[in-house]
Every structure is written in C-alpha cells, then in structure tokens.
Design a protein around this nucleic acid. Structure first.
Lengths: 317, 317
DNA sequence: TTTGCTCATGGGCAATTACTCACATCTTGC
DNA sequence: GCAAGATGTGAGTAATTGCCCATGAGCAAA
C-alpha cells in the first residue's frame, strides 16, 4: 500500500472499506484480503467510516419518524421511557394507537418474573389501554390504584381501571376505597388514616412503575364531565393558571402542583417517586398539548406514551 | 406482545428494531430488553428489516479515484452525468452498488418540486435500482415506460419496472401495453397508431430524464434469457456486428442503431433526445464492457452510472 | 374435533466483530 | 538531526451476531 497516508487517502480507504462492508456485504476478513491489509485494519477502517459519518443509514418506514421523535424527547426532557405512535389526523379518538402502545408497555412490565408493584391512575385513556391487555397470570405482582374509586355521587367511578385490570391479570390488587375529591383537607387526613387506606397508600409509595393519564383543564375536561369539579371551580382554577392534572393533582404551566384548595382536597395517593421509579403518562390530542408539556417540564412524569402530533409540539421550542 | 401479530404490526416492529440497531446503534440484546422480546427475536426483526428493504445504506463520500474517473469520463465522452461506484472484484452480482447509486440519482430527480417526465427502460439492473427507492409521493411528476410490458409468451414482462416504480412513488404512470418485439414493422406501425400507445409515446418524447439499462449481446444476454430473441437470431446479429442494446434497440460497436430487421420489430419508444434531455445508462460488469462503450461512443446515452472496472476500461484507450 | 401445515420462538453454538494493550512508525517542533 | 507526542499495527480476547434445530401456537382443511 501507499507509504504515505494522508488523511484524505485514509478516508478514501475508509469509504471503500465501508462500501464493501455495508453495500457489498462482505466480511471484514474478505475486505482485508481485497485491500491487502490486516483484518484489524479493515475493522478500523469500517468503524472510521461510521465514525466519520460516511455511512448514512436510512429507515424507510413511517415508524422511523416516531423513533426519531422518541429519542429526541427522551434527551430533551430526560425521560426514562418514550413511545411515540403514528398520528392518524383523520381520527378523533383520543385513545387510538396509544391504548395499544400503553398496553404493550404495561404488558412488558407484567411479564417480568421478579415481583413488582404497579401503580395505576385513572381516566379514559388508561381504561382503553387496560382493555387492550391480554389475559396473563401475574401472581407475583401487586397492582395498586392511586385514585379513589368512588364517584361524586357515591357510585363506583367508571373510569377507575384497577378492577378491569384485575380481571385480566390475576395479581393481588389494592383499590382505594375513597372518593377522588373529598370536602376538606381535614376529611382527607381522617380518611387516609384508616388502616385499609393507609396500607394501600404505603404500597403505592413503593411502586416500581406507575401508569397515569393526563387530564387537561377546561369545562369539557374529564374532571368536570365526571362531576368531580363544578364548572365555575374549573374556571377559577384556569384563571389561577392551572394547566392539567394527573390523578386529580392539579399543576400549573410549569408542572408544579398548585397550592390550591382543590389540591388540598385530592384524596389520591401522591405520585410515586420520579427519581426511584418509572411514572409513565399516557395521553394525546390537541386539547392536552399544554397539560402534557407541563407534566413533562415539571417532572410529574418521567415517561411518556403519546403520538407524533404531541411529540412535534413538545419538540418545537 | 402476545396479541395477534398481523404482518403490518410485524413490519412495524421490524422497523423499530432496525432503527434501534442501525440508527441508534444499540445492540440486539438492548433492543430485546427494550422491546420485551428475546435476543433471537430481535435479531430476526433486524434481519427482516433488512430483507424487506426498510433499511437503506448509502455511502456518502467521494472516493478520490472514483471522482477522478467520473470527471475524466465526463470530459472524454462529453457526458452530462457520470457516477462511478467502487468495484468489488469478488462479487458476481451485476447490480450491487450501481443499484444504490442509480436509486440515489433517480431520487434526486424525483425530489424536484417542478413537474418532470421521467422515462424508464427495463432490465434487471434498473429493477434493482428501483427496489432501492424509498417511498416518496411525487404527484407532480409523470413516469413513462419506454418498453412494452408484455413478455414473449403474453405474460407480463417481469423486468418491466414501471409498476414497481409506481408502487413506491405515487406519480401518474404510463406503461406501454405492447410486447417488446413484434412480428413485423407493419405490426409495429399498427400498434403504435393506437390512441393509448400513441399518447404514451408522445409523453416519452417529452421526457426530462431517462434511465435505461444496457444489454450486452450473447446467448446469455437478457434478450435471449427472457425469450425475446432466439439463439440463432442472436448469433446472426452478433455476426453482423451488434454490440449491445437499450430497450431492445440494437446498436453496433460504434453505437449506431443497426439497420436490421430486428430493430424494425422493436416496439419500444425511441430514446428521448440526448441533446435536450438526460438519458442515463446504468450498467456494469465484464460482459457489458463493449456494449457500454458503444452506447457512450454512439451517444445512445449522455449519462452513465457504472463502476470502477468499467470506468477503467472506457478510459484505457 | 382432528390432522397437517406454517411460522414464530428460544436455546445453543459457531462465526464474526469490537476492544484493549504493547509496540512500531510517522510527524512535529526545536 | 533528534526527542516527544500522535497515530497506525497486530495479537489476543471479550462481546456480539448469525444460523440451525426442536418445539409449540395458530390456523385451515378434512
């Protein structure tokens, strides 16, 4: 070979080796023979070609952009887990796609053989996700609800999902026999002191992974639709800067829990630690843009399952 | 994951795995953990992504000697466009490398926002190139076939590429509902007079760019293999000095169309103007040396995508 | 319902590739 | 012309990947 190898010549060789390796599909051994160098040198040239970005790999599939977004979001917001599903602009469903993706992620956790504690919030999206779960026996795990299962009128809250979940997987489950909102901070303390509630709260604090929906603010928001909040309470909250809620915990545009009397009355368990465990939000849709951004910024969650449209919104500034 | 896995979902997974492997640079083990599958399954998905051509690799570096050859060829034969890819002396494939390069050049044309007419010939090499194309919507362009799509036995000619092309790009396309060779000059006139054929011929004459394969002469040549010409017809042609063919048009060593009865029966559209448009040949391989030289000398083409070995041959005298 | 077929799965193993270390060679600055 | 640092090389070894096989699930025909 040439005695003097300037960096141009070396890059040429790297390009040639990279071409033989990736395009022609030869092994590094064959390349070494063809180029008259040692196997190791061939390997170095190939990795140089990669390092110098001479080799461009492109994935020609609609999923590609989702993966891209996921990786950027993970970096930008320091998230543990991000899953982006393709958007269907023609669909008005607020769950299509993410329900399946959410179920897949829940299932991944449930398939673990070591026992875990899985905490779960409430909401339509989460319910849709749980409905997608296959039947698996998970005797080793425990599933705990972060939110009360009693509706404002005393009936069972429809969108409390822990029972649906318990139906399909055979794990021990710990519902929270409370309303979502109580009348005062004092009442909450009283209720939380009950042995049964106490133990559920304790278990929830040990959660290894948590799945929650993310609610937006507005008179059409779930909190209002389901009768937990009156229309004017909601309007007042919005005036004070509320951006969204998770399990009833209301946060502002920066994702900080608001020092508000409504939050004083939330009977849900606190969200498990975002430092020590995974807390994964599942949500999409135009109306939730701000709520999702706030939740991510304020680290109410450290994982996100959403769609392309939300990803674009979160990445755009 | 244990849900019903339709092939769509499986391709999605393959794309994910492929992305994680090639773009994100994760190992198959990491991918397996991330996707909740076994390492072997991850490996299968990755290779499926490759097999399904979801992964496109290209080399983005001007290898000095290739660039040099290209510029010399351009000058020597007054060509509009020359692309030289490295040779792999041990490979017997007649398409490797130039298929990717051809696809890249086709893509460059397709990416133009102003509407163009792209004419396309036939052949294995061209088919391999089109298979490398990514899916792009090109509603503004028109794609027209220069050759008939009916094989000698009346079936669809396999190596007619316009349909493969129309699959991946969503442009209007104009196939040529004719055999490649007809029985006589009179029959050709008759068929060409049909309205449908007429309009395709008219469009092809307006082509802004044309991509064609270059066929060699010989009993192993495509024209024979695919049954368009009998063995002894071919031998007679060679005796009369035939050097190669493009879209069935047979030319001699000087690249001039032969005044031969076979050429009288070729039903293909004439090659678009080499003065007013780009007509790019894609071919390589020892057996095509003479055919390529003739095509370039006789200006059947004014652009060439080939490999180092051919470039050296063309430059050596 | 049974039988046969296809195909995905996971384990195991061999081939291939990546990394580390010690040494040789080349370039640079004086 | 020489020392010092940078850079390339080969060997050995660990990690990663590719492939074959037996198995079992899903599905269609009998």
């Amino acid at each position: 070979m040439a005695k003097k190898l300037d960096s141009q010549g070396r890059l040429d060789d790297a390009a040639r080796a990279g071409w033989l390796y990736y395009v022609a599909g030869r092994t590094q051994d064959e390349i070494a023979v063809a180029m008259g160098i040692s196997r190791q040198s061939a390997q170095r040239l190939v990795s140089l070609a990669v390092a110098e970005r001479l080799i461009k790999v492109r994935l020609d599939h609609p999923i590609a952009v989702c993966m891209e977004y996921a990786s950027e979001l993970k970096k930008k917001f320091n998230l543990r887990h991000v899953d982006i599903v393709p958007s269907d602009p023609d669909s008005t469903s607020s769950t299509i796609g993410i329900a399946e993706a959410g179920a897949a992620e829940i299932e991944r956790w449930l398939r673990r053989s070591d026992p875990i504690v899985l905490a779960i919030g409430t909401g339509r999206t989460l319910k849709a996700a749980v409905d997608q779960l296959p039947a698996i026996e998970c005797l080793q795990h425990r599933v705990v609800s972060l939110t009360g299962n009693i509706g404002p009128d005393g009936s069972a809250a429809y969108y409390n999902v822990i029972f649906s979940m318990a139906d399909v997987i055979k794990a021990r489950h710990f519902p929270m026999p409370l309303p979502v909102l109580v009348s005062s901070a004092e009442e909450r303390e009283l209720l939380h002191a009950q042995a049964l509630v106490r133990s559920t709260l304790d278990i929830s604090a040990q959660a290894d992974v948590t799945f929650v929906g993310i609610g937006e603010m507005g008179v059409e928001a779930p909190l209002c639709l389901d009768g937990f909040l009156e229309r004017d309470e909601m309007l007042a909250l919005m005036k004070r800067g509320a951006a969204g809620e998770i399990c009833g915990w209301i946060f502002d545009g920066g994702g900080k829990l608001m020092p508000d009397d409504v939050n004083e009355r939330v009977a849900s368990a606190p969200l498990p630690s975002r430092d020590a465990s995974s807390v994964i939000g599942i949500a999409k849709g135009r109306r939730k843009f701000e709520a999702i951004r706030a939740a991510v910024i304020g680290r109410q969650i450290n994982g996100l399952i959403t769609d392309e449209a939300v990803a674009e919104f979160l990445l755009k500034d």
